[in-house]
Design a protein around this nucleic acid. Structure first.
Lengths: 332, 332
DNA sequence: CTGAAAGCGCTTACAG
DNA sequence: CTGAAAGCGCTTACAG
């Protein structure tokens, strides 16, 4: 058996209560006793049993993380690992641990969240995606369990979230294309069940409208998923109608498909992606994209949540992380 | 406060001990009581408090994962996220949780391992890299704490590990190149502090030796890290000596650098990578590589460890995961 | 500033 | 098959 607080108490000739107070840095302990207790702890190589502390404190200093596990996108897009790193960095600073689970689908994710909550394993939950009717958000909300969402949720009652300004990012992007002389700009977006899909579409529309460029429904395609194949097919549809000057996509993989189509059909069309995954540098032409700063998103998500858990006031219940437009050959 | 075992006991008119036995599926409980207890649990929506169970059981059913956090490689190479997924899949099956930490350097990693061990937070540890003199392995070994290493460790006393057969994979690869008529084959490997670097180099040498092809030290380069720049420079060194028929690299990013050099200098050299990262498909020419099945590695690591934790006999204390040679344009 | 005691919510050896 | 009791290793309100 490992050393417990009792052995330390015995050696230091104080009560277990006192040892406990030294560990938790209670203010009202004399320097003299502190010294004796620390000496005893050192001698015995005492390490507090975290589990026992958790039980007595009704807190684990642990965050639960749900990672969606749908597709291969997980591997091509380093978003999740970057966000996790950001989360981990802040959590380490504050001495929080992180527990994760991959969910294969929304129902699965909900089950893990329930498990996290019920079992008392974690003090708070971080969701790495927000769906349109998000079961996890609904559940956590109704349980009044602390959580934060990476990605702006639909009904922003008092939910904490972090996100990019997807509207703004796309708006700026389209403006930049217009500046470069593009008049007819197509749009290839992912499923509208994701809020960022909607936001990006809105940003696109607004930019066109403000410049009095008309929005053609035939050149706005909603794909089923973020893959090159869907991007390719979407571009085929757009071109069946009319070859545009530029095409804005909401994901680099979609952008790759569009580029592919252009190459095969020898079209000169400016193309933009989103997320700035490492692959985009290696396209031919390399793909202009938007860096969404995934690590910052994760970092700030952890920050909001942990501050709330510690009872600190957050100035606001959300945080907007700026994006960077990375211009490459595909919009030259 | 949440529902506890006591409330359930009261409602079911049995003792808390009995409720506990029902939860833990103790065999000697009558069907009748079982039914009553389950009914009471349902009615009260009782969920066991995992932390309390952990304390009483002196076990958390949780695995600790250390993710090295050195470089950007983390993002370009989906190895870690794939391995994590494999681990997660097996762990979920067996109802284990996973806790992770990013370590910025070996010392950092050691600290997290110590923390995992001391605090009693986890029942076992999974290391995602093995170094030459691995502090974590040494520590875990001396503490006799259960752990498994992804990557074959140096001193394989009784350590559990999973790995590819890196020797074999490179050996086969080189043979394939020889078959294709290559006589002079260069080698660009990563730091020798990684065991897989050594193994791959050995496989390369053996293949040449068995065919009576001479091994030229000038065409074997050890780089400091797995980056394109190092690959590029290594190829420059090799070519300063003599332009080979083919170059084997131990990492796709190194391979990218070599390809780049060849393109710039208009050389026709066959090039191979390792790890089969998504980027390799997008090179021009696309890069032949070795798929190391990271998800399988993770899965089997979790399996070995959890089986050991459950007291099940493992037929052997390690597991070899097969590799796939993925031939692409770069070796055409 | 410090101690004795009760408690966190489970488990399990012992007794029946 | 079931219960009363002690225990897992901490914390903390209460009393001094």
């Amino acid at each position: 058996m490992a050393i417990t607080i009792k052995e330390v108490a015995k050696l230091a000739k104080v009560s277990p209560s006192t040892v406990s107070r030294v560990i938790s840095k209670s203010p009202r302990i004399s320097d003299a006793t502190k010294k004796v207790v620390y000496a005893a702890m050192d001698e015995l190589k005492y390490k507090p049993n975290a589990i026992a502390r958790n039980l007595a404190n009704a807190s684990t200093k642990t965050l639960g993380l749900i990672i969606p596990n749908q597709d291969e996108n997980l591997f091509k897009n380093p978003f999740f690992i970057q966000a996790m790193r950001g989360i981990s960095i802040y959590a380490q600073k504050k001495n929080y641990k992180i527990m994760f689970n991959y969910g294969s689908n929304p129902q699965d994710e909900l089950n893990f969240v329930r498990e996290f909550v019920h079992s008392k394993w974690v003090d708070g939950v971080i969701l790495l995606t927000a769906y349109e009717n998000d079961l996890c958000i609904e559940y956590l909300n109704q349980e009044a369990f602390p959580f934060v969402v990476v990605g702006r949720p639909y009904n922003i009652h008092d939910i904490m979230w972090v996100d990019n300004d997807n509207f703004q990012a796309t708006y700026n992007l389209v403006n930049r294309l217009i500046q470069k002389g593009c008049q007819e700009i197509g749009f290839v977006g992912g499923p509208q069940k994701y809020i960022f899909s909607k936001d990006r579409l809105e940003g696109y529309k607004r930019a066109l409208e403000l410049r009095n460029l008309s929005v053609h429904p035939e050149t706005i395609i909603e794909t089923e998923d973020f893959t090159e194949t869907y991007g390719y097919e979407a571009m085929a549809k757009i071109c069946a109608h009319k070859v545009p000057h530029a095409v804005v996509t909401t994901d680099d993989l979609l952008g790759f498909g569009v580029i592919q189509y252009c190459k095969e059909h020898n079209l000169s069309v400016k193309v933009t992606g989103f997320n700035n995954i490492p692959l985009s540098v290696y396209q031919n032409p390399s793909l202009t994209s938007v860096d969404i700063k995934a690590e910052d998103l994760g970092y700030n998500a952890a920050k909001l949540l942990i501050r709330a858990l510690e009872g600190l006031e957050n100035p606001v219940n959300h945080y907007i992380v700026g994006t960077d437009l990375i211009e490459r050959e595909s919009t030259k």
